[in-house]
Structures are given as structure tokens and as C-alpha cells.
Simulated assay, not measured.
Amino acid sequence: MEFKNDVEALDGLRDKFSELKKEITRVIYGQDEIITQVMVSLFSRGHVLLIGVPGLAKTLMVTTIAKILGLNYSRIQFTPDLMPSDIIGTEILDKERQFKFIKGPLFANIILADEINRTPPKTQSALLEAMQERAITAAGQRFELESPFFVLATQNPIEQEGTYPLPEAQLDRFMFSVWLDYPKYDDEITIVKNTTSNLTFDLKPVISAKEILYYQDLIRKIPINDNVLNYAVTLAAKTRPGNGMAADVSEQYLKWGAGPRASQYLVVGAKTHAALRGKYSPDIEDVQAVAPSILRHRIIKNYKAEAENISVEQIIEKLV
């Protein structure tokens, strides 16, 4: 990882991304755009909420990504009876009759929070504190989490019985909210053919933790033109009804808009999106590419939008 300059390092990141994607698509078919968004979030130091009906390989995608990243990985199955200590860890009395803290599954580089909306808010908050602070407090002590720290949470949108929807303030901690749709017909043919045979794939780690941290720092150093920065901030401001900058569609159909964290993620997401495509500075197209997944879970429709059956995607499309 010895590069002569940052330009050469960005070329290295683009090549590494191509290698990562090639390895992932050996197992995951027809989800190229989703894979790209997960990688953008990883290199932007963000977290991802994957939303899709059962059977769309959400869990398989996360486990595959964990394998090729060569990082410590924990899967936490969220259930209604899960307590914060079940994921953070707990104190036990050892042989010397001293209290000893035993770390929970949250102490890993990649966390798969499976069906995050099935657990009570108290446990959700324990995870989301770790996402924001990259540290947790337990037994009166603060424990720093190992870097990189990346949370991929899954959510089932159709089975709402016995669920605890994430509050907007907690949803805001996720950089991306990504919708997984059904695969295309040709992709489904490939999926069924490969998964109903004895075909197996021996995945190899493609990138190390040290490299990921290096590239995360590199992304922050990418320059951005003022007009692109202004576009990103203006786009977020246009979602806020009643602030003087709101777009007509926001005044008409939105109750609440996106906060400043959306502006930050639009900029850093655009930088990463540009870098993964071999560009050395983002443009407005890069902001537009990441905008739907960043704004989707940060804007709240009003009763008029519900009555007229206006979707969040339609509103974002008009804003962009």
C-alpha cells in the first residue's frame, strides 16, 4: 500500500473495488447496485439499513461481504426478548471473586443486525449508540470498538406484527436505507441453477482492515468544488418545509425534512461514489447517485402525500 501520491492511491482504491465486486458477484447475482451502495457506505464510514422481503439474500450478502473483507464478523438475530447486555456484554464473577466484563457480539468489525425492528427500543438504542460513538459504556466503563466498525441491519417491510419500528432519530444514524427488490428473471434462473446444485465457492479475503482505514481517510481528503458542495447542502435544505428554501413538492407533501447529517452524507457519499468510478473529484451526478438512499429514510410524508398515494421516491426524484 505504498503509493507515490493520492492520485495513485485513488487508482488503487478503484482497482480494489473492482476486485471486491468481482468476488462478491460470484455468490450474489443481480444486485450490482446494492453491492455498490454497501461499498460506498463502508468506505464513507457509514452504516446501511437493508430493507426487503424474505428470501432476497440479505443475510447471504452480508456474510459474503464479511468473508471477502477479512474482518471480524458477528451476526446478531434480533428478537423481542433480546436485552442490551446480550449484545454489549455482561459482568461475571471470576474465580478470584472479582467482577470481569465479558464482551458481547458487538465487539467485531462487521455487525449483521438481522431483523433490527424485532427488538425493543432499549436494545435498538444500545446498538445505535455504538454506531454513532464507535464506543459503548458498560459497567461504568467506556470501551472503544475496534476500527473499522460497520453495521449492516436488515428489516422486513411486510411483516409488521410484533415489530418495533425504528424511530426517525435512530434511522438517521444509518447513512443509507437500501431497498432490495426481486431479482430479474434471468438472474433468478442463475440463482436457482447454482443454489440447487453442489456448486460451492471458496471466497478469499480481498482487502484488510488496515487498507480499509487507509482508504476511509483518503476519501476525506478528496477535494470538492463549491458548486457541488452547495448543490448537496441545497438539496437537503429543499426537503425542509417552511424554511424559506423548501421546494414546492416539499411544502406540498412533506411534514419533516432531512437534517444536517444528510448534507454531510451527501458530500462524503459523493466523494466515495466518484472515487470508486475512477474520478478524482465528485460532481453533481455523484450527489444525485447517492441521494435517494440517503434521503429515503430522513423525510416524512404528510397526510396529503398519503391520501394521494405519493411515494417518497417520487418526491426525491422531483427534488433531485
Score class of each variant (00 low, 15 high):
residue 186 D to V: 10
residue 76 I to P: 13
residue 41 S to K: 01
residue 81 D to I: 06
residue 165 P to L: 08
residue 63 T to I: 10
residue 157 P to G: 09
residue 251 E to A: 08
residue 90 T to K: 09
residue 147 S to W: 03
residue 21 K to V: 02
residue 138 A to M: 06
residue 288 Q to V: 09
residue 68 I to G: 00
residue 14 R to I: 02
residue 288 Q to D: 08
residue 251 E to Y: 12
residue 180 L to H: 02
residue 242 G to Q: 06
residue 242 G to M: 06
residue 269 G to A: 08
residue 195 T to C: 07
residue 212 I to R: 01
residue 160 Q to D: 09
residue 151 V to H: 01
residue 318 K to V: 14
residue 214 Y to K: 10
residue 64 T to Q: 00
residue 161 E to V: 12
residue 82 L to R: 06
residue 108 A to Y: 01
residue 231 Y to H: 13
residue 241 P to R: 04
residue 139 A to Y: 09
residue 288 Q to N: 13
residue 129 E to R: 01
residue 161 E to M: 12
residue 286 D to H: 08
residue 299 I to A: 04
residue 290 V to H: 05
residue 18 S to D: 14
residue 231 Y to N: 07
residue 316 I to P: 11
residue 67 K to R: 13
residue 97 R to I: 09
residue 229 L to D: 10
residue 149 F to I: 01
residue 218 L to Q: 02
residue 137 T to C: 02
residue 275 A to K: 07
residue 235 L to V: 05
residue 40 V to H: 00
residue 65 I to G: 02
residue 191 I to D: 03
residue 171 L to D: 03
residue 236 A to G: 11
residue 288 Q to C: 12
residue 260 P to H: 11
residue 249 V to K: 03
residue 150 F to G: 05
residue 271 K to I: 03
residue 200 T to N: 13
residue 109 N to Q: 05
residue 262 A to C: 10
residue 251 E to T: 10
residue 24 I to R: 06
residue 74 S to C: 05
residue 201 F to C: 08
residue 19 E to A: 11
residue 213 L to T: 07
residue 165 P to E: 10
residue 80 P to Y: 10
residue 134 R to L: 14
residue 256 W to C: 13
residue 80 P to I: 08
residue 179 W to I: 15
residue 25 T to N: 14
residue 213 L to I: 13
residue 252 Q to F: 12
residue 96 E to C: 00
residue 264 Q to D: 11
residue 271 K to E: 05
residue 158 I to N: 05
residue 151 V to C: 04
residue 53 V to S: 05
residue 182 Y to G: 02
residue 171 L to Q: 10
residue 207 I to A: 02
residue 237 A to N: 14
residue 193 K to V: 08
residue 40 V to A: 10
residue 261 R to K: 05
residue 219 I to Q: 06
residue 273 H to M: 11
residue 180 L to D: 00
residue 122 K to H: 06
residue 103 K to C: 09
residue 269 G to V: 05
residue 314 Q to D: 15
residue 157 P to N: 05
residue 98 Q to A: 13
residue 100 K to L: 14
residue 44 S to V: 02
residue 251 E to K: 09
residue 38 V to N: 03
residue 159 E to G: 08
residue 273 H to I: 06
residue 230 N to C: 07
residue 114 D to K: 04
residue 292 P to C: 10
